[in-house]
Design a protein around this nucleic acid. Structure first.
Lengths: 293, 293
DNA sequence: AGTTTGTCACCTAGGTGGCAAAGT
DNA sequence: ACTTTGCCACCTAGGTGACAAACT
C-alpha cells in the first residue's frame, strides 16, 4: 500500500512569501510553523535541519518507477506521529491519466503569469479525525540536481548539465485550509488553483520552478494543533504523501509531441486543438521514459 | 452615523438547510447557535423569542427613505455587546449605485436555479479585533406583509394583497467564514456567491424569497466565541447592520423598464444588451418611489 | 541552436436580459 | 390578466496550445 522510504523532511523553504491574491487567509499555528492559508506561501519548514535542496539526494529510492502503490507515505522513523494524522490515507484521483502521462514523461508548462497543472492534482482522503482541523498543502521537490534538454531527433531527454540555482521553495496551501476532517473527506480535494511559474520574482504566491528541471509534487496533511506550544509538536502533526506517477519536467514550451497530443486530447480547455475524433480519447501507446545518459 | 432603531432580533429562521454545494464548511459554535459556514444555511436563530416574520412590523420607522446614513446598526438595548463586535463599523460599497436603483425602486430577479443580486452587496469593515475569528452572514427580512403588483400604465407599484406564506428563513454565510478580523478588514468583502431563488424546495442553500414581495437585506457580524458555553453569549456576540438603500422587490421578470435599463447599463454581464453609448453610464433622473395605495 | 515571451483563436464555465410559451 | 418558465444570443472571465518573434 504505502512505501516506507524516508524522503527526508520538508525541504528547504524560505519565508519570503507573497501577498494573498485575495482569498481567505486564516492563520494556523501548526507544527510547520505559522501557516498562512490561501494561495501559495513560503514557510520556514518543520525540521531542525535546513537541507539545501540542490545537491541533496531527496530521492534515494527508485524514483521513476510508475508503480501501482496507492500512496507513497513518508514515514520518518525518528518521530512518532500524532494519531490525528497517523491514520490518514490518501488516494490519487485520475491515476490512470497520470500514469499515461508519466509513461510518456510528463511535462508541465511554466509561464511568467503562472500556469495550472494538467492533470490537476486531486486526492480523496480517508482516516481523518472528523472534528479536528487540518490544513492541506503541496510543495515540489527537485528530483535530481540536473538540467535537461530534449533531443527532438531521438525523442529523448538528455542531461544538459548541473541544475540551475534552486528557486525559492514555496508551498501552496489548499485555499479551503484550515477545515475540519469531515469537510476534507466529504469530496475530492482539488488543487486546481495551484499555478506554476518560472518567474523568480513572482509576486502572486505561485510555485516557482526552474524550466528544464524535473520535479516531484508532494502532498502534506497538517493537523492544526490547538495547543499553545504546538510548534514543539512539529514533527508529529503532519504526514506527507508522494505519488511518483505525478513527477514531471517543467518546460516553457512542450518538447515531446506525444505529451502535447495527450494534453489536447484530455484537457477540456484545449478542445480547440482537437482535429475531430471525439472518440480517440483513450490509450496512446505506452512508451518507456527515462533520461538517456 | 448609525441609527438606533431596534429592528427586533434575527427573525424567524428554520433549520432545514441544504447541503453545502461543495465548498468549505467549517463549523462554528457561536452565539447564533451552531453555524455552518459556506453557501447558505438556515439556522435556528439567536433570541429567546420566536417572531413570525409575516405580520410582524419589522420596520416601524421610515423604511423607504434612501438616506445618507453610513450604516444603520441595530442596537438592542436589552443586551450589552461583546467588545469584539461593539466597535465594528461597516461601510456599504457602491453606495451611489445602490441609491440610484433605490430611487427607481430596486428589483431583484429570483429564479428556480438561483440568481445573483445586482448590485452585489459589498462592504468595507472597520473596527474588528484583528486576531479574533468572525463569521459574516446575510439574511433577508420582509419589509411588510404585503404582496405587490406593478401597474405598467402608471409605472407604479400597487399593493395586491396580503403577503404569501413566509418562505423558509435562510441565512447566507460568506464562504470565507470563519476568518480573522485582519483578513476581513484587508479588503472589500463581497457577497457575490449569494443567490436568490423562488423555489421553496431549493436544495442548493440559496436564499428563498417570495416574488412580488419586498425585502430588506441584513448583514451580520458574528464573533466566534471560543468559550465552551458560547451559546449563552448569543446576544452579545453579534452585531447587525441594515442599509435601507439596499431594499428591493423580488420579481421573476423586471417590471419597471427603468430598472432594466439601469441594470443593463451598469452590470458588465448584461453588456450584450447595450445599444451603444458607452458614455451614458450615469445619472438617470430621480424618481420618487413608494407603494401607491 | 536552444529556450523564452507575447499574442492569438478557440475553448470552458457561467452571469445577463429578451422573448415566446406555459402556468395559474 | 398576470406571473412564471425555459431557452437563447450575447456577454465576462479565464484556461488551452500554436506560432512568430525575441532572447541568450
Amino acid at each position: 500500500m504505502a512505501g516506507d522510504a524516508d524522503w527526508g523532511n520538508l525541504g528547504t523553504q524560505d519565508w519570503q512569501a507573497g501577498r494573498a491574491s485575495q482569498r481567505k487567509r486564516a492563520f494556523l499555528s501548526t507544527g510547520l510553523g505559522v501557516l498562512a492559508s490561501s494561495e501559495t506561501y513560503s514557510l520556514p519548514v518543520s525540521s531542525s535541519s535546513w537541507e539545501p535542496p540542490v545537491g541533496t539526494p531527496f530521492l534515494s529510492g527508485p524514483c521513476t518507477s510508475s508503480s501501482e502503490a496507492q500512496a507513497m507515505a513518508e514515514t520518518p522513523s525518528q518521530s512518532p506521529k500524532n494519531p490525528r494524522v497517523s491514520g490518514v490515507t490518501v488516494q490519487l484521483e485520475m491515476k490512470p491519466l497520470w500514469e499515461e502521462f508519466n509513461q510518456l514523461g510528463t511535462e508541465m508548462i511554466v509561464t511568467k503569469a503562472g500556469r495550472r497543472m494538467f492533470p490537476t492534482f486531486q486526492v480523496k482522503i480517508l482516516g481523518m479525525d472528523t472534528l479536528a482541523d487540518y490544513a492541506l498543502l503541496m510543495d515540489f521537490i527537485p528530483l535530481d540536481d540536473k538540467r535537461y534538454r530534449y533531443a527532438f531527433h531521438s525523442s529523448a531527454w538528455l542531461v544538459a548539465g548541473k541544475a540551475d540555482p534552486a528557486t525559492p521553495g514555496r508551498v501552496h496551501f489548499h485555499p479551503d485550509s484550515p477545515a475540519k476532517g469531515a469537510q476534507w473527506m466529504r469530496q475530492i480535494v482539488s488543487f486546481d488553483k495551484l499555478k506554476l511559474t518560472n518567474n523568480l520574482l513572482d509576486d502572486n504566491g505561485h510555485i516557482i520552478l526552474n524550466s528544464m528541471h524535473r520535479y516531484q509534487p508532494r502532498f502534506h496533511v497538517v493537523f492544526v494543533d490547538p495547543r499553545k506550544d504546538s510548534e514543539r509538536y512539529a514533527q508529529e502533526n503532519f504526514k506527507s504523501f508522494i505519488f511518483t506517477e505525478t513527477q514531471f519536467t517543467a518546460v516553457t514550451a512542450y518538447q515531446n509531441h506525444r505529451i502535447t497530443q495527450l494534453k489536447i486530447a484530455s484537457n477540456p480547455f484545449a478542445k480547440g486543438f482537437r482535429e475531430s475524433d471525439p472518440d480517440s480519447w483513450s490509450t496512446p501507446s505506452a512508451l518507456s521514459w527515462g533520461p538517456t545518459i
